[in-house]
Simulated assay, not measured.
Amino acid sequence: MTTTALDRIDIKILNELQQNANLTNVELASRVNLSPSPCLARVRTLEKLGVIDRRIAVLDPAVLGIGVTAFIQIKLEKQIQLSLDSFTRSIDRLGEVMECYLMTGDSDYLLRVMVSDIEALEDLIVNKLSRIAGVSSIRSSLALKRISHKTVLPIDTNRPVQIKSGNPASRRIERPTKSQYDASPQARPDGGMNLETSRIFDHGTAGL
């Protein structure tokens, strides 16, 4: 494992690309006061080191009709490696899950999910998450309004940055608002479940 130091120009390049990944090399070079050739070499080195993971387009969920954000706490029956691996594989297959964190505290996982509406959230919780093997309880909180959202990491040009080459880039928290979505399961005559939206969703998955 080798350690590489990023200098002020490297950090300027990163900050510029975080703001706008569509900059041409000539535009980027101008903004960081370099000529195009050494600027391109630095960018390629940052990519090779894994500092620049990938370049993506950030879409507007409201325009696409994805209007509901929820934060879901999940607890497993057992914290054994087999259960953790199985849960991770299941979560990776769910497109609605934007972020998933292994947590300390009362819950094992914290998920940030985005769906089109409450009905879609109900479907995600009841028909997908609660059916993952090993899940013992689910609690969800519904975000009323996004106050702040950032994709730019806070890299200070006045502070040295040391990176370890070869380390996998961390993949994939916004805090929910106080308001919470509750869905306590209730049996229906047809054997299904109803979800109430007045209290915290918190249930075991037995029988699901």
Rank of each mutant, 00 (worst) to 15 (best):
V113L: 02
Y109S: 08
P61D: 00
V115T: 09
I91A: 09
L129V: 01
G67V: 03
V113I: 07
E122A: 06
V58D: 00
V126T: 09
L124Q: 00
R89I: 11
D92P: 08
L94P: 09
E77M: 05
G105W: 12
L59W: 03
V126I: 14
D106K: 15
I91F: 09
S107G: 05
V63T: 10
V63C: 02
D92G: 15
R112Y: 02
M103H: 08
E119F: 10
I74P: 02
D108Q: 07
D123S: 13
S116F: 05
K75I: 01
V68A: 03
N127W: 03
S90A: 14
I91Y: 08
R93L: 09
A70I: 09
A70D: 10
Y101R: 14
A62D: 08
Y109F: 15
E119W: 09
G67T: 07
E122P: 02
L82K: 15
G65F: 03
T69W: 04
M98R: 15
D85S: 12
L129M: 01
F87T: 15
A120W: 10
V68D: 04
G95I: 11
K128I: 00
L59P: 00
G105L: 12
T69Y: 06
R93W: 09
D108K: 08
T88K: 13
G65L: 03
A120L: 05
R89Q: 11
G105T: 12
I80T: 15
E122N: 12
V97M: 01
R112T: 11
S116E: 10
I91M: 14
V126A: 08
G95T: 08
V68E: 07
I80G: 13
L76G: 02
D117R: 03
S107Q: 11
L111T: 06
D92W: 04
I66W: 01
S83P: 02
A57P: 02
I56M: 04
V113Y: 00
E122H: 14
A62S: 12
I74R: 01
D85M: 11
D123I: 05
Q79V: 09
I56C: 04
A70L: 10
M114W: 02
V63N: 06
I125M: 03
L84P: 06
I72N: 13
V58F: 04
A70Q: 13
Q73W: 11
G95W: 10
L111P: 07
L121M: 11
A62Y: 03
G65P: 01
E99H: 12
L111G: 04
G65W: 01
G105I: 10
Q81A: 14
L76S: 02
F71A: 11
E77G: 05
T104Y: 15
L94N: 06
R93P: 03
S116Q: 13
D108S: 12
K75G: 07
L121A: 12
M103Y: 09
G67F: 02
V58Y: 04
V68Y: 03
K75C: 02
L102N: 14
S86W: 03
D60Q: 09
G67A: 09
L129G: 01
I66P: 00
Q73V: 04
D117I: 03
T69P: 01
E119R: 15
D123F: 14
